[in-house]
């Protein structure tokens, strides 16, 4: 079955950037996710929400991209929230031990509410 091309959309909600990856995060096209987050980080945004509602699958390449975003945010003492994760994604992050390094919410609105009260 042909995979849809990976793409990224984003928007600013208050002082947080919400990123919407779409498609299978499994090849170099996933670099666009890192770049999109990088754009907000360079603009001084320290709160990023990644809404995975349209990304059910991820492989080692995608994990590497996500690590990069986590490290970029850690370097500026920022926060990453992941929302709307499929069971596969959640289990994978948990098994790898990454879940402790991100804040997970079932829905995007929960993450936005959580970030509203955070100073960094």
């Amino acid at each position: 079955m042909k995979q849809a091309q990976f793409s990224v959309a984003s928007k600013l909600v208050g002082d947080a950037a919400v990123i919407y990856p779409k498609g299978y995060l499994n090849n170099l096209s996933g670099e666009s996710l890192v770049k999109e987050c990088g754009i907000y980080i360079r603009r001084g945004i320290t709160k990023i929400v990644v809404n995975f509602s349209e990304t059910d699958l991820i492989n080692s390449i995608g994990i590497s991209m996500l690590l990069q975003i986590m490290e970029d945010l850690r370097n500026i003492k920022g926060t990453i929230c992941c929302t709307n994760m499929s069971k596969f994604l959640h289990d994978t992050f948990e098994m790898l031990g990454l879940i402790q390094h991100m804040t997970v919410f079932p829905a995007e609105s929960d993450a936005i509410d959580y970030l509203k009260v955070r100073t960094t």
Partner: peptide, 9 residues
């Protein structure tokens, strides 16, 4: 390289 860093975190 992404595969390696993603595999070993």
């Amino acid at each position: 390289f992404y595969v390696i860093t993603g595999t070993f975190l």
